[in-house]
Amino acid sequence: MRHLLSAGDLSRDEALLILDTARELAQVSGRSVKKLPTLRGRTVVNLFYEDSTRTRISFEAAAKRMSADVINFSAKGSSVSKGESLKDTALTLQAMGADGVVIRHSSSGAARRLAGWVDGAVLNAGDGTHEHPTQALLDAYTMRERMGRLEGLRVAIVGDILHSRVARSNVLLLSTLGAEVTLVAPPTLLPVSVGAWPCAVSYDLDEVLPKSDVVMMLRVQAERMQAAFFPSAREYSRRYGLDRDRFARLPDDAIVMHPGPMIRGMEISAEVADSPRSTITEQVTNGVSVRMAVLYLLLGGSESAIGN
């Protein structure tokens, strides 16, 4: 594995290696010594063209816990916002000797383009409406921790699939790992060729919920309403929101996930978000472990992840 650009690039074995490594690292993080020497002397650049404090902090924490030097290169207030091209920024990073670049960008494919211009490993932290592979990995990790397995797990992903990089990465990764994914959305928020994706599709959330072990709610942005993807926030909530009544239709041990940031009252009600069966805060914790695992596997070379 040289870069992590798409969840679809991961074989089943590679994906499982990441999840297993993340678990090992999580156990170490749980002990008192939080810092590992594994990536000492390595430089990781966080190149964020989109505001995403939570993702940036997660990657920063992951890199620092493994003793890497971290440089945050955010678009705001840097040469990037003065119109410097991605390629010129890439050449700067290259000159700085970045071993790894974590990139978040509003353009689909930006991570792939960057990988063509730098020697270091490129880690896609979300590119436009394309993919967000570490989010899918941390989601899979969370599901496996909670449910004990991924093979055969029934996962419903609900919301704006069309514009969601989280959905794309999850469909690819979960199908590789043997889970059964069903996408649930109004037809306007599904890609036209979704029938070719390795998953099932439904327009009816109530019908899918009783047959789901995991339900993942995606954020729906208000601007979709103006573009006539659905008539109103109220109608969307009524048909696709996860409120208390719908929550009751889930099997007793099913869990509720959300990649955040969530809009309480729109796609998920506050009481569901705060229920013990919601994994929303665990997802944040697991995100650091999974990103540590990915950075280690991309940059760490041959030493053991734990270094003992």
Partner: peptide, 18 residues
């Protein structure tokens, strides 16, 4: 619109030109 709308645009997350 960024590219032909279809299987490839849906996978790449690029807005479709139907």
């Amino acid at each position: 619109a960024q590219m032909n709308e279809g299987v490839v645009s849906d996978r790449l997350g690029l807005a479709g030109w139907p």
